[in-house]
C-alpha cells in the first residue's frame, strides 16, 4: 500500500511498531521513541527486525531498513517516514 507523506503520521508509525513489539512480547516497560529496538532495549533479533521491516513496508509502502543507515529507535523510523517522499 503506497501512502502520501501526510498519511504517515508519527502516531500511526508508533502504533505499528508498538503493536508489533507487543505481539512478540517485546514491548519493554518504559519503551519510548529513544529506546533501542535491539539488544539494550526491545531486544529484536535479526529475523524479528526483518519481520518489522516487512510489516512497515506492508503498512506504509516503503521500508526504513532498506536505506543506508539502519534505524536504531522508533524515533529513527519516524524521521525516515517524515523525510521520505513516498
Amino acid at each position: 500500500m503506497n501512502v502520501t507523506p501526510e498519511q504517515v503520521e508519527p502516531a500511526r508509525i508508533e502504533k505499528a511498531v508498538t503493536d508489533f513489539l507487543s505481539r512478540l512480547d517485546k514491548l519493554v516497560d518504559g519503551f519510548d521513541a529513544q529506546t533501542s529496538l535491539y539488544a539494550d532495549g526491545a531486544g529484536l533479533d535479526s529475523l524479528e527486525t526483518a519481520e518489522l521491516s516487512a510489516v512497515l513496508e506492508d503498512e506504509f509502502g516503503t521500508d526504513p531498513f532498506s536505506c543506508d543507515e539502519m534505524p536504531e529507535t522508533l524515533a529513527d523510523i519516524v524521521v525516515f517516514y517524515g523525510a521520505v517522499k513516498v
Partner: peptide
Amino acid sequence: GRPNPMTGSIVA
C-alpha cells in the same frame, strides 16, 4: 521467499 534487506529473504 520475500526479499528482505536484513536477511536477504524471509518466508512469506
